[in-house]
């Protein structure tokens, strides 16, 4: 895991720490203030260890990961998993129900669309797939989960001001910018880079953006149909939890427009928008719900 740590005490009032990690096929960057250098460096190393652990747990492409083992065996037998993975599966099932099935970590399933792909046994912490050919992928969950986990680590160590950026699409904030009442984040215009399509103000909150990927490909699949969703607009979700924002933005993008409002209404305190970037820098924003 590529690790980059920088520290600047140029501003003695707010010495700044910066951490960059390659993780989960993406890049996690964190800025925080208020710690001495050795303290910040220690925290950075612990964050790295935590990210490594989560990656080991959730990466279905790594043969020995618990998730890969689960995918291999759980159609045939009950498979015991660790606490984190069990919690991830519990939360994912809750999100699946809450988003009308438009968030679904089962990437291929022979289950019908309204059927549950797996059954969890809390006593034994085990999982059993309900049909053959079920494959679980936590890609759409892990970033938000990781942001939550790392935010908590920072907070537990007394960090009051931090901005966490995971892949530029999932961002979480502790406190505010040292010189403002929030952290200001601009959503990049998709056709005129450098223009702000929408400014988001984060204060102990998070945001997530879903849409076409950097290659312009439609990579989000509608779980109901199995087809890639070819919507031009971005979906932006803001709220308390980075994980919920991540899940919701994915689900809302995958869902037909007619169902988006109903999905958002299930999540109190979360705001969602459709952002359509046009030629010549134009922007059209529609609040969902």
């Amino acid at each position: 895991m590529a690790f980059e740590f920088e520290y600047s005490a140029k501003n003695p009032l707010y010495p700044v720490s910066y951490l960059k990690l390659r993780a989960m096929h993406s890049r996690l960057e964190i800025i925080w203030t208020g710690q001495a250098e050795n303290q910040a460096q220690g925290l950075a190393q612990r964050v790295e260890q935590e990210m490594l652990a989560m990656e080991r747990e959730f990466n279905r492409f790594s043969e020995k990961s618990p998730l890969a083992v689960l995918n291999l065996k759980a159609a045939m037998e009950d498979v015991s998993v660790g606490e984190d993975l069990f919690m991830a599966l519990e939360l994912s099932e809750a999100f699946r129900r809450g988003t009308r099935g438009y968030f679904d970590i089962a990437t291929s399933t022979s289950c019908g669309k309204d059927m549950v792909s797996y059954t969890l046994n809390p006593k034994s912490h085990s999982v059993r797939f309900n049909a053959p050919e079920v494959t679980l992928d936590l890609g759409g969950f892990a970033k938000g989960f990781a942001l939550e986990r790392v935010s908590r680590m920072l907070s537990d160590e007394g960090v009051e001001r931090a901005l966490l950026n995971f892949g530029s699409s999932s961002i979480s904030a502790l406190g505010t910018h040292p010189y403002g009442e929030w952290w200001a984040v601009g959503v990049d215009h998709t056709k005129q880079h450098g223009i702000v399509a929408k400014e988001v103000r984060l204060k102990d909150s998070a945001m997530s953006v879903s849409g076409r990927n950097y290659k312009g490909e439609y990579h989000i699949v509608n779980p109901h149909t199995g087809a890639s969703v070819a919507a031009e607009e971005l979906i932006l979700v803001e709220g308390r939890s980075a994980l919920v924002c991540e899940v919701l933005s994915t689900a809302l993008y995958a869902a037909p427009k007619t169902e988006r409002e109903a999905i958002v209404s299930q999540y109190d305190g979360y705001r969602a928008s459709e952002i359509l970037c046009g030629d010549c820098g134009s922007v059209s924003i529609r609040k969902i719900g």
């Binding site: 959503v187 990049d188 702000v196 953006v209």
Partner: peptide, 15 residues
Amino acid sequence: SGVMSNSVFAGTSWA
């Protein structure tokens, strides 16, 4: 520098 401004970097998945 002791200032605040917005930074444009949010968008769909960075690779």
